[in-house]
Write a protein that binds this DNA or RNA. Sequence first.
RNA 1: UGGGGCGUCGCCAAGCGGUAAGGCACCGGGUUUUGAUCCCGGCAUUCGUAGGUUCGAAUCCUGCCGCCCCAGCCA
Length: 561
Amino acid sequence: MEKNTETENKPLDFIRQIIADDLATGKHRKSITRFPPEPNGYLHIGHAKSICLNFGVAEEFGGTCNLRFDDTNPSKEDISYVESIKEDVRWLGFNWGEKELYASDYFQTLYEFAVSLIKRGKAYVCELSPDEIREYRGTLTAPGKNSPYRDRSVADNLKLFTAMKNGEFTEGSHVLRAKIDMNSPNLNMRDPVIYRILYADHHRTKDAWKIYPMYDYTHCLSDMLEKITHSLCTLEFQDHRPLYDWVLDTLETPCHPRQIEFARLNLSYTVMSKRKLLRMVDNDHVDGWDDPRMLTISGLRRRGYTPGSIRNFCRTIGIGKSDSRIDMAVLENEIRSDLNVNAERRMCVQDPVKLVIDNYPENQVEMVEGKNHPQDPDKGIRPLPFTREIFIERDDFMDDPPKKYFRLGPGREVRLKYGYLVQYLSHKVNPETGEVEEIRCTYDPESKGGFAPDNRKVKGTIHWVSAEKNVPVTINMYDRLFNVEDPEADKDVDFLEHLNPESKVVLKNCIAEPDVVNLSVGQNVQFERLGYFCIDSVESTTDKPVFNRTVTLKDSWTPNK
RNA sequence: UGGGGCGUCGCCAAGCGGUAAGGCACCGGGUUUUGAUCCCGGCAUUCGUAGGUUCGAAUCCUGCCGCCCCAGCCA
């Protein structure tokens, strides 16, 4: 009974329109897309947008989508990242066929293309230092000037490039540059570096290469080699498209994929860049890449988000070209609507206060019946032990409640969900702390299950757990990581200044109904009236489960109104 | 002040010359053994702005304004 909103009709976004047109006109017989992560960090919800787009297009148009690691910078990349990326893509529900691809698999071919570029007089070995190259490049408003090495002979260039490849030069001493136009208003076209010397071990090719190709040169050719039809990337690459096209045109490749750019995802109350996420991890502001407060795929998974909810989220936000920042409430809405349908209900008291039922027999344990889902009888029922002493939520009792507070208070009657109707008798306050210590009630023996025998109206229904038969649990109450909508808005204030100090509050004295011991790690559950939770995969121990709060239930109760 | 983009409701977003979809948020009301869910209803005379073309413009043209990206041997 999973709600399938993923296939509902929705107007095609501009990219899907282009692809549909290309298919309709016969320009392409099928679409081939690719998701090209660099293995230098963990995937986050922004990547999920790209994954859902690229793999989604493949599914919708009967095409294919490659998973290709853009591993051209060994100094930043690592095998551990490729493993996590594969796991995350798979978890999101996508497959990439036989095996994943790597730009590093094309190193030899890429090298040969570079030789071809040199032979065509379109690339040269430059000996300017990095600083000099920057200087020669000019500025946004001033044109650049030609490198003194620009007009070397093809033979010299070939010899020098071979020497670079053979490790005869030091890092930084030589680069291979495309010979385009130092006067171009587009900085990317001012003889961009396409190969640099790097004496770093590559996680796949080890020490086979001393030179590594740059992104702009590698990406278009990798796309071409894989016969990608539509190469989808984010807005900041718009200025790179002329270079993408130049390389393929100059090399007269048989296939020329079309690069199309879309806006990257921004979410309120969080940051998205890998650099910033890495900083939070390194400085222990969070407990690792998979901290449940992180918007990484692994963090969301640990938090209790489902793959379907993330896919739905990506679908509802759409694809466009304007810079945008999506409200966190949209993401929360997706996980709530998934879990509302799919998560079973249980009871748990997060801030317990004891309630004694005066007229209930001592030492009696009575089993009452709880529905696992209020709207879905197929999810079955479970027995709940009811006893004379129980725990209720501290919030559910008020000494002097406002009129519209319909929970327990002097003179009031409430329903203990699935249990009995109870009537307030008295309560004890700790003289030192002023906290309510114990509440006494009487119950209506005719109201078992919570049904009023005379149909009298009982407005309030609260949750409870037996004081004798229960399981103590810890709950991590997670909240948004930052306390401002856009932590990066003010360039003069470090984004870490906006960290929400209460983003993780650990409640160690929670009491759950006995059945929670049957829950498996990662399984989503709703604790009635509190929110959605799941058992944490790393902090839980066999004798004490630790729950993560995925998201609260919507709460429209406003006190004093 | 160079180049590339973008501006439709509080946040996203359809709209492709014929008279402003949808989602989230928000506000009412109903049902309810979760103040949840569910259900009904409300929510842009107006599309950054000023002109122009047209019987008719968010859609076409022109000028202005605002925001984002680019000067890595990162991707």
